[in-house]
Amino acid sequence: MSTSIQKAIELILSADPELLNILSTTAKVCLTSSILALIIGVPLGILFGAERFPGRRVLLVLNRTLIGMPPVVCGLLFYMLFSGVGPFRHLKLLFTVKLMIIAQVVLITPIIIGVMETFVADTAPALRETTRGLGFGRMKEYRLLVNECLYSIFSAYLLSFARAIAEVGAVAMVGGAIAWKTNVMTTAIMMYTNRGSFTLGIALGLILLTLSLLVNVVLSLMQGRLSR
């Protein structure tokens, strides 16, 4: 075990090309999907939390169901849609980074919507009573509401990025874990472990944990500033 860890550290320090490729693919998939999910999820979460409209409850139940959706089910769904017999086969997206990103967006957007909706539903009534009492218009009311939400937006992003970077089921199914193309850290760890090549697996595991730690530290510091 200790020899494997030592070799893993040597591999990281030697900037192994395959390792760098896996890292860059992981960064591309996780950052793109989490940012896209944020762009889609934040306005929807605020809307669900702040407004009351017909069908809102149904959409919330649907969103909560999607939060609990197993990644492999999401992967299976996309696999069926984009495989050689699926309705979207002509797009030729199966086993591409693009489809991995789309699958990740579908998996993590409900998390962002859920976090935002919970916070906004709790905050909006009191804020609205005050802003309407002051005679502010809807635009100003929403600007102030978004300003209240900054802390929650970072929390939601933190959660979604953590899910994206740790996710394996969906990206393995739609990406196929193809070396030098669609292999991300989690699928690579699984692949190398299956092959009995523990060194690269441990190296990737160490990087994954360090990255996760770094992202959490940075975002926690930002959250601290925003909560003031």
């Binding site: 009191a126 009573e129 005050t130 802003t131 002051l134 005679g135």
Partner: peptide, 24 residues
């Protein structure tokens, strides 16, 4: 008629005291 209403529990916006006052 323009109406100003101060609720029992007025909401402090996430900004400084002075900026809160200057929102109005």
């Amino acid at each position: 008629v323009s109406v100003g209403y101060l609720p029992q529990k007025s909401f402090p916006f996430r900004m400084t005291t002075e900026k809160n006052i200057l929102t109005n």
